[in-house]
Design a protein around this nucleic acid. Structure first.
Lengths: 187, 187
DNA sequence: ATATACATGTAACCTGTTACATGATTTG
DNA sequence: CAAATCATGTAACAGGTTACATGTATAT
């Protein structure tokens, strides 16, 4: 079976929901997948075009009044099958997360301990904000969407975000403690 | 101060070590930064050229006999200053780690629970392998490089890798438990 | 001898971001 | 009526990967 890039599969997946236009797809990803995926219109519209060319989806102008320019996309049977067989394939390889904070810390002996600690504290604050966002989304899903079939899966992905963010926060705390406070020499 | 991309700063950082050629830089990143950074020759050689153009580094053919084609790069004062001021800047924003396993799980109600569990189990195995690699590198550093000034910082970055990988492994275990085992209907 | 490691480099390609252009509709 | 949101799309650019080309030195 022909392979596509991840962008094509995300869009295929989203077209199984009520989000059927480029604009709606963008909104859904920004709101619900935002902690592990992001996308731009520069990817969405060309990919939608590709899906139609490949006969994985079909377009039709919206019938709703006052939404003249809106294009509604729907999956073909071929599209559904392509999505399902992608879902079943195991993930090829773990991604190497490029981490700028680790990169800077790796070269830590070229700056003062104070500066290293400042970097990590700043990073920790950002992680805390992220963690709180996850908790807020989780609460919101539990309140509003607990009936939804998808809700269960959304909560699993949020749990992943919470756990790994927590681990990173703990690392920050531990590392700040481990770095000597003294103003000793560095290169 | 003029800004460069992360690739330029990694190379600037590595040029403070004994790795002074494109080939050596590649080797170091693959061996020591591989859990949070990767790079290809297609980035290294053009970037080295750029660093020289920008007067952040200088080149000289290797003097070692039998290493005729080897180019040795060294930082200029401007290069050292550029590196140091980059090190001090706080990391702009947390990266959104694109995570294919979460993406597939997000669309989990389009496949059987069995298939979802299989995906997560496979992912967990890959995480375990990664974790063991980290432990092995850690042991190796403690045995061979504990005297090195840099070793301390290398261990911090490894600790980060261990903690977040562990959190992801725990999530796998918990999620596998939470997904019902029954063969109920799905869309 | 031959395979592996050393060593440099480029061109084509893929993926994704940003800025821009354009205009309709809704809300305050 | 102004601002925000809805809605689609493209071109230029930035970043990175892969495959290729080329040749030397070392170890088995």
């Amino acid at each position: 079976m022909k392979m596509y890039n991840d962008t094509a599969y995300v869009i295929l997946g989203i077209l199984t929901t009520e989000c059927t236009s480029g604009y709606d797809i963008k909104k859904l990803i920004d709101q619900s997948l935002n902690h592990f995926w992001k996308i731009s219109y520069g990817q969405i519209y060309p990919t939608l075009k590709l899906l139609v060319e490949e006969e994985l989806a079909e377009v039709a102008p919206s019938l709703e009044s006052g939404k003249k320019d809106k294009n509604e996309y729907s999956l073909t049977e071929k599209g559904v099958n392509t999505l399902k067989s992608w879902l079943e394939e195991p993930v090829q390889q773990l991604p190497v997360e490029k981490n700028e904070i680790l990169l800077k810390l790796f070269f830590g002996n070229h700056q003062s301990n104070k500066a290293s600690i400042r970097l990590i504290e700043d990073y920790r604050t950002k992680l805390q904000t992220r963690y709180q966002t996850y908790v807020a989304i989780e609460t919101s899903i539990k309140e509003h969407d607990s009936a939804s079939k998808d809700a269960k899966y959304w909560l699993y992905t949020l749990d992943y975000g919470k756990r790994t963010t927590k681990a990173a926060m703990d690392w920050c705390a531990a590392t700040i403690k481990n770095i000597p406070k003294g103003e000793e020499m560095y290169e």
